[in-house]
Design a protein around this nucleic acid. Sequence first.
DNA 1: CGCATTCCCTGGGTGC
DNA 2: TGCACCCAGGGAATGC
Length: 268
Amino acid sequence: MPELPEVETVVRTLEALITGCSFNDVHIHTPSIINHNESFVSLVINRPLQSFKRRGKYILLGLDESTLVIHLRMEGRFFINHEFSRPNKHVHVSFKLNDGRVLHYQDTRKFGRMLITQDVNHTLSHLGLEFDDPHFTVEYLFGALKNKKTTLKAFLLSQSIICGLGNIYTDEVCFRARLHPEKNVGTLTMNEVKAIHREIKLVLSEAIALGGSSIRTYTNAMGIDGLFQLQLQVHMRAKQPCIACGHLIEKTSVANRGTYICKHCQKR
DNA sequence: CGCATTCCCTGGGTGC
DNA sequence: TGCACCCAGGGAATGC
């Protein structure tokens, strides 16, 4: 399940592999993957790939005049071969590169989406700040939280104030800040908000440095595995001892998501 | 408007 | 071995 660090790794991998290329042709095997696809092909074909960026969990491939925006959701991934024919039933879009290679988009559950836009800022206007944006300060976060009534977990997953966190890193941020994910964000103290702010920045930057996490069914682009799963302190550690106090980690459900907590370290 | 819930989708796991 | 059922989850759509 790619979150910000995994998407960043995919973007860097794509940049290393297809910089300077363009797409000669596109096969859309599963039209529902693409939003507004009437102009999709004409805006994608024969346009040089000029930039490789990320915004939240979205991949932004800068083409001549427009941007190809891709969200991998749960199991979306890319791989390259030399066959333009559909490799298997889970490949939904195949991009023929001008050097003969083919970039395939595979997504078992068809949750991923891609679209072409000429106004990325408008398309992604629902997203909050990046974790490394200079405007993402403790004061900004405290101000955004003080009037909200939702839980810490739901807030961190919402993308609206700070974007890029998914289920894995939300659990890690809550644990490392020693805060219960069901805590109401409107009641957090300045010191608690400081801890959340600090841990968001630390967890995401550490995970990017290790190439993201590879857990469950997800491995990164082109079979490159991240290593951050080895650094996870609570996520996927049900019934194992807390690294801080030794109590057993519990798995529960918060905001309709599987959630791992040390109930001794993370008080409501 | 703000927050909560439902839905999409498939393979893997479980129970009988 | 086969079959029915449930679970995983990001974000859009829907509900209250």
